[in-house]
């Protein structure tokens, strides 16, 4: 299983970096749908993998001077507190409900990708610390419950609600994800829900895969990458929904 977990982390980390995500969106479906692991095992392992991806990515962004570190530690306080709540909730919620929640989150991400990118002029920025706090809390909750980084909510919070430039938002979000995933993983570990050999494999693969993805990303055809991303995530969302609702006619 160690070799499979390294490969899963490698693919998750590489595709995550290629598509501008943390890797959890890819890693969790690989572990559940391809390796046949239950979501209760896949989510903690994915969080450990996300720590590795986010730490590696953050080092790169910090070197380039894009990361607002003081803002990241303040935002991470909110995100971490809700990640702990999410991890505690996830061990009490049935696996099928988590699969449906994960599928709905994937559909939301796909919808966001299909929509043409909005031209965020300064008028469209809301500048609301309260809205940003709410988004950070939501990001922590989904990170703790579903094993993803939460960047999908962190970036809008930083870019739209706190008026940070896009590159600063992405870089700062990556650092927040490192803290949030670490808190979620610690909460699962304290409950004894982490398979550490699986998690170490995922972390190693994700660390290396993230660097490969970041290298390939500027050279890859953007439209093709985007289309593949939408198709793959939509397929994974349908698979998760089928598993969540236990629909026999699909198979």
């Amino acid at each position: 299983m160690i070799l499979e977990s390294i490969l899963a982390g490698l693919v998750g980390g590489a595709l995550g970096a290629l598509w501008g995500l943390g890797g959890g969106f890819i890693l969790v479906p690989i572990l559940t749908l391809l390796l046949g692991l239950p979501l209760s095992t896949a989510v903690p392992a994915s969080l450990v993998g996300v720590i590795a991806t986010a730490v590696g990515g953050s080092a790169m962004f910090i070197r380039e001077g894009h990361t607002d570190r003081p803002l990241a530690v303040r935002a991470a306080g909110i995100s971490m507190a809700f990640a702990l709540v999410g991890a505690r909730l996830a061990v009490r919620i049935p696996s099928s409900a988590l699969e449906i929640a994960f599928a709905l989150l994937l559909i939301a991400v796909v919808a966001k990708m299909i929509r043409p990118p909005a031209n965020h002029s300064s008028e469209t920025h809301i500048s609301s610390p309260w809205l940003a706090s709410g988004l950070f809390a939501g990001a922590g909750l989904i990170a703790g419950m579903l094993g993803v980084g939460g960047g999908v909510l962190n970036v809008p919070a930083l870019h739209l609600a706190l008026r940070r430039p896009m590159i600063t938002a992405v870089a700062t979000s990556t650092l927040i994800v490192a803290f949030t995933a670490a808190a979620g993983a610690a909460a699962y570990a304290a409950l004894g829900h982490v398979d550490w050999s699986l998690a170490a494999g995922c972390a190693t693969g994700a660390f290396v895969g993230g660097r490969i993805g970041a290298f390939v990303s500027p050279r890859a055809p953007l439209r093709l990458v985007r289309k593949t991303f939408v198709v793959v995530l939509f397929y994974v969302a349908i698979e998760m929904l089928v598993r969540g609702f236990n629909l026999p006619w699909w198979r």
Binding site: V48, I51, A54, V55, A178, F179, A182, A185, A186, A189, V194, W196, A203
Partner: peptide, 9 residues
């Protein structure tokens, strides 16, 4: 395990 999860902090 504690050190790995605690490295970012």
């Amino acid at each position: 395990k504690v050190l790995f999860t605690g490295a970012p902090f």
